[in-house]
Design a protein around this nucleic acid. Structure first.
Length: 315
DNA sequence: GGCTTATCCTGGGCGC
DNA sequence: TGCGCCCAGGATAAGC
C-alpha cells in the first residue's frame, strides 16, 4: 500500500536508476491504467522522451520528461514501478516501457486502481491529473500545528478520517495515520475538533517523525509494495499498532484493538490512546447498525437474485 | 457544505 | 477438493 514514504522511495529510485534514459517503445496492456490521454496516444506521445527529474507530490510521482512534458503516476493500492533488465513474465504487468539502453520500466498493478497520465508540454499538471490540484500541505516541509488547528476547527469527523483526507495533508494513508496517532496518544475515534493545541503540536511532530523514519527504512512492505529494484521496505517491522490487532501494545502490554473508520481498519491501544465512553459507545452502536443493515441487504439479495452477489469473474 | 458509504479491482484466506 | 464469500484500501461519486 504505497503512501508518502513508499512513493518518495520510488521517486528517489527513478532519479538514481533511469535518469536520462530515452523511451524506445511503450506498450499499454490494460487500458484502464492510463488516465490521460487514450491508450494509443499515450503509447505514441511518450515515445522518444528522455526521463529527467522525478519528484513527489502527496502520493503522486511527477516525472519531468524532455521537451517540457511530464509523466504522472499514482500507485494507489497495489501499483508499482519496477526496472527490469530484460522482459520476463512479471505478474500484473499493465504498462511496459522499453528503454533505449535495453532495460524496461514496468508498471505492475494487481488491482488496477493506479493510473499513469501523460501531461503534454505547456499543459498544467492539475488540468490533466484529477485530484492533484486539491492536495493539502506536504507534511515533511509545510505542516505546522497552526495549520492543523485551523483545519480541524470545524471538523466533527474522527481524527483518523481527517488525517486520511488528502485535501488537508497530502500523502498520509492508513498505516502512517494509525502509527502517528498511537505515538501521539490520540484515539482515532476522537473528533478532530476536540484536539487541543498541545495535542496537535505533538501530532505534527509524530507525523513527521514516522514519515521520516519510514523513508529511512525504504517504506512498508505489508502487502504489495516494493521499490524500483523489487526490494521490500522494512518499516512494517517497527510498526507499533498497524496490523497488530490482538497483539500486546509495545508500551503497556494492553491488547491492540481494531475498528473500522472511513471504511478502513484502524488500529489503536485502548490504554495509550484513551477515548471517552460516550464516543466509544456511539461508534460501536453505529458500527452495529451498519453491520446489521449489511447483513439484511445480503440476505435480501440472496433471496431475490442469488447470482447477482456472486463473485465477479477475474479478468 | 460536511460527512458517510458504495464502488472500482483482484488475490488470499476461510468456511462449508 | 472446489466453490463462494469476505477482506484489504486510495480516490471519487453518490447520497444523506
Amino acid at each position: 500500500m504505497p503512501e508518502l514514504p513508499e512513493v518518495e522511495t520510488v521517486a528517489r529510485g527513478l532519479n538514481k536508476i533511469i535518469l536520462g534514459e530515452v523511451v524506445k517503445e511503450v506498450k499499454v496492456l490494460r487500458d484502464e491504467s492510463v488516465g490521460h490521454p487514450t491508450k494509443t496516444q499515450f503509447e505514441r506521445l511518450l515515445k522518444g522522451h528522455a526521463f529527467e527529474n522525478a519528484t513527489r507530490r502527496g502520493k503522486y510521482i511527477v516525472i519531468d520528461l524532455s521537451h517540457g512534458a511530464k509523466l504522472v503516476v499514482h500507485l494507489r493500492m497495489s501499483g508499482r514501478l519496477v526496472v527490469r533488465k530484460k522482459f520476463g513474465e512479471p505478474s500484473f504487468l499493465r504498462v511496459r516501457i522499453l528503454l533505449e539502453s535495453g532495460r524496461e520500466l514496468h508498471y505492475e498493478d494487481m488491482r488496477v486502481f493506479g493510473r499513469l497520465w501523460y501531461v503534454p508540454q505547456g499543459a498544467a499538471v492539475n488540468e490533466v491529473v484529477s485530484g492533484i490540484g486539491d492536495l493539502g500541505v506536504e507534511p515533511l516541509t509545510d505542516l505546522t500545528a497552526e495549520y492543523l488547528h485551523k483545519a480541524f476547527k470545524k471538523k466533527s469527523q474522527p481524527i483518523k478520517n481527517t488525517l486520511l483526507d488528502q485535501r488537508i495533508i497530502a500523502g498520509i494513508g492508513n498505516i502512517y495515520a494509525d502509527e502517528s496517532l498511537f505515538l501521539s496518544g490520540i484515539n482515532p475515534l476522537r473528533p478532530a475538533s476536540s484536539l487541543k493545541k498541545d495535542e496537535i503540536e505533538v501530532l505534527v511532530q509524530q507525523i513527521i517523525k514516522v514519515l521520516e523514519r519510514a523513508i529511512e527504512l525504504g517504506g512498508s512492505s505489508l502487502r504489495d509494495y516494493s521499490n524500483l529494484e523489487g526490494v521490500n521496505g522494512n518499516y512494517q517491522d517497527t510498526s507499533q499498532v498497524y496490523g497488530r490487532e490482538g497483539e500486546k501494545c509495545k508500551k503497556c502490554k494492553t491488547k491492540i484493538e481494531r475498528t473500522k473508520l472511513a471504511g478502513r481498519s484502524s488500529h489503536y491501544c485502548p490504554k495509550c490512546q484513551p477515548v471517552s465512553k460516550k464516543i466509544l459507545d456511539a461508534h460501536n452502536s453505529a458500527a452495529e447498525i451498519l453491520s446489521e443493515s449489511r447483513k439484511s441487504k445480503t440476505t435480501a439479495a440472496k433471496k431475490t437474485a442469488p447470482r447477482a452477489i456472486s463473485r465477479r469473474k477475474s479478468k
